[in-house]
Simulated scan of single mutants.
Amino acid sequence: MSVSSSTPISSPCDLTQGGRTLRRSLRCHGIGLHSGQATNVQLHPLSPGQGRLLQRRDLPGSAPLTLSPEVVQPSPLCTQLAQGEVSAQTVEHLLAALAARGISDVLIDLDGPEVPILDGSARDWIEAIDAVGVTPCYCREAVPTPLPEPIWIQDGEAFVAALPAPQLRLSYGIDFAAAAIGQQWHTWTPVREDFAQEIAPARTFGLAHEVESLRSRGLIRGGCLDNALVCDGDHWLNPPLRFANEPVRHKILDLVGDLSLLGPIPVAHILAYKASHRLHVRLAQCLRSRGYA
């Protein structure tokens, strides 16, 4: 990854607020996890109220896409956005980093179909954003509307829910037959624990026995041991892990990115078990339909 940067500036923020943009533009370059294509990304500041836009520089004349749950298109193993001619996949790690720094007005400028996977986490995105800095909050701090009743989205034994709570909290559970992963649960409370330290470094992961099948379907063409953890039964092919429960922390990272399509994330206890990008987005769509956006 290459990034234009200056002295790092710390810019922690509440995921439920937003109201910031970048101080300066930044650039990065990397390989798409699924497409295998090299892509250049530029992030540019926007004025208050312009929102979060995504444009494809390689599609001249196309209108920018406005980020929202409604522009998500079905895609295995990642979140893909599409509106008119413009589409982009694997946006979730970048979106999580933007949300964690409260950036609600930004132009994401790509010259290809997929956001680079970088090291498989959001750590490089957070470091790049902190390097250029973010503006102070330019809108009056709002009092988040409390969630009046639980919302559940279920598919078999997998589910994601938003439960009334006094502050934002995200809890996730996973259960894999592979012994190296097994059953894992993790809870992250943003106001108490730093995203950059606790969630952003967690990398995407996969199972060794699925690699060839996924590649035969045109997926993970850019995947390698430098940008994904690979589990082979009772061991990892590329240790060490950054956390003992790195896989479930990565699922929280994905959840933050997907829910950030709403803008600021509603104050609730978000609870997920064996969920997927599809279920995450269905919850975001349900919350938006009830006025939480």
Rank of each mutant, 00 (worst) to 15 (best):
R203D: 08
L225T: 14
L225N: 03
A202Q: 05
E193W: 00
S216L: 09
L219K: 08
S216G: 13
H209V: 13
E210T: 03
E212S: 14
F205Y: 14
V211F: 07
R215M: 09
S213D: 14
E193P: 01
I220P: 09
I220E: 05
R217A: 04
C224M: 01
E210N: 06
Q197T: 12
G206S: 04
R215K: 15
R221F: 02
I220V: 15
E212M: 04
T204E: 07
R217Y: 08
E198F: 00
G218E: 10
G222K: 12
E210Q: 12
H209D: 15
G222Y: 03
E212Q: 15
L214F: 08
G222M: 12
I220G: 07
H209R: 12
T204Y: 02
L214Q: 10
H209Q: 14
G218W: 09
G223E: 03
R192V: 02
S216Q: 15
L225F: 13
R221K: 15
T204A: 04
D194T: 01
F205D: 06
R203A: 09
E198T: 04
L214R: 07
L219F: 11
L207I: 13
G218Q: 13
G206T: 10
E198D: 13
R221T: 03
C224D: 15
R221D: 03
A196I: 00
D194F: 00
T204K: 06
L214A: 10
D194A: 03
R192Y: 00
A208Q: 13
E212I: 03
S216T: 14
R203P: 07
E193F: 01
R215E: 06
R217N: 13
S213I: 02
G218R: 05
E198L: 00
S216F: 06
Q197G: 01
A208S: 12
